[in-house]
Structures are given as C-alpha cells and as structure tokens.
C-alpha cells in the first residue's frame, strides 16, 4: 500500500485548498471532505499540508539511517 498524506476528517472543512495545490491528483473532495487516493505521482511535496488552514492534513517523514553505508 502506498503511503499518502494523512487526513483528519474531523478537522477538514472541505475548503478544497489542498486539492487546488495538489499537482498529482492525489486528493479529492468527497461529500465536502478531502480524501487521499493512492497515486504513484505523489512525491510528498507537502504543499497540501502547508496550505491547509485547519491543520487537517499532515505529511510526516520517517527518518532512517541508510544501511550498508559506504563511507569511502
């Protein structure tokens, strides 16, 4: 399953700002609430998170140390 931005449906006011900034079509408004749909093109630009006026969208990052590091 592809990781997509997380949406807090209780906070979403259905303003559609996020849908308008999303360049990959990964967000759609259904019944006045935004829903994320899995799309390969989502590059985690985090613009939707940035523009959301109610903090309903979050794009959290995982921080990991690369395995098999070649420090040379």
């Amino acid at each position: 399953m592809m990781e997509m931005p997380l949406i807090d449906r209780d906070k979403c006011q259905g303003c559609g700002l996020c849908v308008s900034v999303c360049i990959c079509g990964g967000l759609v408004l259904t019944d006045n609430i935004v829903t994320a749909v899995e799309v390969e093109e989502c590059h985690w630009c985090t613009l939707c998170e940035l523009v959301c006026p109610t903090g309903a969208i979050s794009c959290p990052f995982e921080i990991i140390i690369e395995k098999n590091q070649d420090s040379a």
Binding site: E49, S58, F61, E62, I63
Partner: peptide
C-alpha cells in the same frame, strides 16, 4: 535528524516539517 534517525525497524516517531520546526524553535 541524528537524534531521531532509526534503522527502519522498531517504533520511531514520524515527524511533519511543522513538528520538526516546533521541536527546534523555528519556522516550518
């Protein structure tokens, strides 16, 4: 990043840029 980096196993917090900003006292 050094403090919160994991090796991909176990439970690690996932942080948004806003949360990172709040942790280090700066803007997103």
């Amino acid at each position: 990043l050094l403090e919160y980096a994991g090796d991909g196993t176990g439970e690690r917090p996932r942080l948004t840029q806003q949360e990172m900003a709040a942790m280090i006292g700066t803007a997103r």
